[in-house]
């Protein structure tokens, strides 16, 4: 996917991916923006070494 340049982003209605605290996404949604919430949990059960390995593989 071609990333949208920041100056172009400022002209459009942004579409959000919310990761973490749900209320950040909720308040954007209430304000009329599209938000997809990620059901996040610490990767690899919080195992830092695994997470680093995943970065290389996924």
């Amino acid at each position: 996917m071609m990333p949208m340049k920041l100056e172009d982003l400022l002209r459009t209605k942004p579409v959000f991916v919310n990761v973490g605290v749900r209320s950040f996404g909720d308040s954007l949604r209430e304000a009329g923006y599209q938000v997809i919430h990620v059901d996040w949990s610490p990767p690899a059960g919080g195992d830092q070494k695994m997470a680093e390995l995943l970065d290389d593989l996924l």
Binding site: S41, P42, P43, A44, G45, M50, L54, L57, L58
Partner: peptide
């Protein structure tokens, strides 16, 4: 297995 680890 990657996705299993990624998402627990």
């Amino acid at each position: 297995i990657r996705k299993v680890m990624q998402t627990n």
